[in-house]
């Protein structure tokens, strides 16, 4: 265990805010706040189904811009992974989240909160392959790729 890196309070408070955000989204729209689904819908725009998706993404981007000024250490990319790995990671995440209908938010938070069997299976699966991938990258490439 790495106790010096352990940040339980920030993780719990940040997590609670995420829980509030998906709850606010649900009481307003009646929908699951899955980020991959919201972004994916921007690529096949339907009438009346575009502006709100753009607004949600814009909200995330505003946070990024503000955070880069007030807390740059929280949003600056680490140098662990190189450009090729990051580009491939993006493609695999983009394709995989559309194929599997969700990511950490839609399955991991929203789905598990309502005990959806599909989301429990999806979350168990992406946690397992994520742990496996990180382990392989560490063993085969010393963590730098």
């Amino acid at each position: 265990m790495n106790w010096t890196a352990f940040t339980p309070t920030a993780a719990l408070v940040g997590g609670a805010l995420i829980g509030l955000a998906v709850s606010l989204f649900f009481v307003l729209t009646g929908r699951v706040a899955g980020i991959s689904g919201i972004v994916g819908g921007l690529l096949s725009p339907k009438p009346g189904d575009f502006a709100w998706r753009l607004a949600f993404v814009a909200g995330l981007l505003v946070v990024g811009v503000v955070a880069a000024v007030v807390a740059p250490e929280m949003v600056t990319a680490s140098a662990t992974r190189g450009p090729v790995a990051m580009a491939i990671a993006g493609v695999v995440v983009g394709y995989g989240t559309r194929l599997g209908n969700g990511c950490t938010s839609g399955h991991g938070v929203c789905g598990i909160s309502r005990l959806s069997i599909r989301s429990l299976v999806a979350t168990g699966t992406f946690m397992a392959t994520g742990i496996l991938t990180v382990t392989i990258v560490r063993l085969a490439f010393g963590g730098a790729l």
Partner: peptide, 8 residues
């Protein structure tokens, strides 16, 4: 899909 997402 979930497996691919985890890999990425």
């Amino acid at each position: 899909g979930a497996a691919l997402f985890g890999i990425g």
